[in-house]
Design a protein around this nucleic acid. Sequence first.
DNA 1: TATGAATGAGATTTCATTCAT
DNA 2: AATGAATGAAATCTCATTCAT
Lengths: 214, 214, 214, 214
Amino acid sequence: MTQATSAKVTKLNRVERNAWTKQKIFDAATKVVGKYGYAEASVARITEVADVAQGTFYNHFENRQELLDQLLPKIGLDMVHFIRARTGTADEARQEIERFSAFFDFIREVPEFLRILNEAEFFAPAGYQKHFDNISSAYLRILQRARAAGATSTFSDEEFEAIVQVLMGARGYLSRRYSYSEHGVTAVPDHVISAYRKLVTHGLFNVPDEETKS
Amino acid sequence: MTQATSAKVTKLNRVERNAWTKQKIFDAATKVVGKYGYAEASVARITEVADVAQGTFYNHFENRQELLDQLLPKIGLDMVHFIRARTGTADEARQEIERFSAFFDFIREVPEFLRILNEAEFFAPAGYQKHFDNISSAYLRILQRARAAGATSTFSDEEFEAIVQVLMGARGYLSRRYSYSEHGVTAVPDHVISAYRKLVTHGLFNVPDEETKS
Amino acid sequence: MTQATSAKVTKLNRVERNAWTKQKIFDAATKVVGKYGYAEASVARITEVADVAQGTFYNHFENRQELLDQLLPKIGLDMVHFIRARTGTADEARQEIERFSAFFDFIREVPEFLRILNEAEFFAPAGYQKHFDNISSAYLRILQRARAAGATSTFSDEEFEAIVQVLMGARGYLSRRYSYSEHGVTAVPDHVISAYRKLVTHGLFNVPDEETKS
Amino acid sequence: MTQATSAKVTKLNRVERNAWTKQKIFDAATKVVGKYGYAEASVARITEVADVAQGTFYNHFENRQELLDQLLPKIGLDMVHFIRARTGTADEARQEIERFSAFFDFIREVPEFLRILNEAEFFAPAGYQKHFDNISSAYLRILQRARAAGATSTFSDEEFEAIVQVLMGARGYLSRRYSYSEHGVTAVPDHVISAYRKLVTHGLFNVPDEETKS
DNA sequence: TATGAATGAGATTTCATTCAT
DNA sequence: AATGAATGAAATCTCATTCAT
């Protein structure tokens, strides 16, 4: 997916060679950041993994930050497609659980994603912003559509925006807590999924009777 | 709170002077990290703000990291006390909303907290770990007590652990989205609070009838 | 000899420029260590003399120590060649005196050598080790060959190893005592040479008759 | 010998307390330099071992260097006495072997001596100078007396001075090579002693007949 | 377009010495 | 005389970026 085809290098025209070099750098950055984090992703290290000279880097990217900021949005789109493909046509609550599970499946598919996502806020703020805009607007539409279908509790648009943050926060924190391990990324335990399902379907607290109308 | 009293400097004995200097460094670090982030919090900058020599720093802290790792747990305890003081004796759901609101109030009291919290995971992992252990164990006890009082839906201990992550993730992500602004920290909008209340009391989705037993 | 040719700098290709820069650093280090000693040979000072930026240093040497450890063995080889070229085909005792004299001649040729040699044990232990292995194994072979030619008193291989240490110690201590002076390095006095000759040809003490068989 | 009596500290008058503190620092320095070398002998480390405050150091020594420069001469005198006590009344050649052996015995008695001696040249030049003046003048007198007794080959005073350097160089280099080991200081092998004896009694090389008169 | 050596600012840390108490 | 916190200069090393070939 983010893998540069290692096919024949010969017989490429100028444009193709150019794109191929850029892709090599991009893939190298994904690997390096995914494995060692943004802080350790020096231009020297990235270009070494990409097997190009340091100077070559600057023929393709304005500076180090530009590349780092492109990392998350690109993989983020992969994630959206991955999740969409795994979401069925059951009722809305079930679909949300499917999306939730698919998120963790994606993390295992692309182990670099977790680190790239989590660190981006501080090391690639522009990329983080872009990714979050992508995700949250998509998520918001999903919720609005569910509401239109009468499948949700009563939430205003503004409240939905907040809910989107909560749901993304849940994924972010849970993945940090449950997906990291010594070597590689592990599957998320079932009780995490069930806890999430209960929360989004019934809430957390029983409400005393007289308050149920609020 | 984390502010060194700038009262009389004269007439302090050796022990007091020593503590006072350390506190000056600590306060300076809080300010600097809160304003510019850990990455920009060089020892040079911190000691400049603290108005001590760079060498003095190393009389009080083993190294830069040690100080950074102390920052979050210390302020985190302030937060716990702050929230506890603002939590009443109403029903459990209301108390949770009070805690939630109080969290955002605390952020406004100590504007540095937000940045110190959010960046700690990567720049002060030991401190982050300590803080999160503090918070999540306290939170877990709260939920268990509520469950014992029959105030929550049916969750296992393991599920509660996951819920704690979700609730902390909610605070983390919402505060990033709604509390930051150009200059300083703003109050969180009411619809964020109402969205949170609805989620924890009723959940997000209506569940089709035949599923209600699950 | 260890002097970078200051000839045309222009018209060098990349490889040549690279080697030339490294040689400039090397020569600068030789000068600096020779004049001020290892302790004062900071990277800042060396690069200033070499007229390159500090960062350039680390393109050519892993770290400061690596350079320092290369200094002695490199010049040490120059010394070996120098001495070998000055050693004739007279009897073994005379050859040893020639080598001894040539050692002091070399010191005057390369005045930096003395300090680089003497301080290396503590400031560049790896380089010192390498140099001494070079020298002592060569020296040992010389003695063994002389013994095979019946030109020495009766010594075992182990005793020869000790003798090598003594002969090197003699050069080391004598050069410290007689070659240093206010400014620059002076020739060694004749009586030093004659004393050495007498020692290695007749020993120091007359032996009472009854002991001569031991 | 260099050990501060750890007897009653109480009941000392001002002068005694003063001397006792100075001795504590001195002993600590001996230990530290002997074990870790001059370079690692920071004032902080020495005073910590001596169990006094850093500032106290400067009540007894002008500066760090002054102390370091006193170390070697003081222990050097101990060595002279030690060797003298071990030298018998046999013929001069045997006495020299006794002195040589006693030197290595002393090294084992006072293991710190070796390092303090070897590093002094560069880290405590003044102390090194003083020590060497002490030793070499004493040594010179020994040789002159032996010559007066007709026990040596024909050497002039100047040649004797050079010989003294050679003999000291022999001890220095041999001790570095044969006395150091992983932990502690080891006895010198017999073949080192026999090699030395042969050298000083018979010389190293057989001299062709026609040269024997030179 | 690719190369990779050169740059130099900036970061952390050490440590001999001072000095007020 | 003893204390130990404060000082600040100096050292090593990193790394994003430039630029001549």
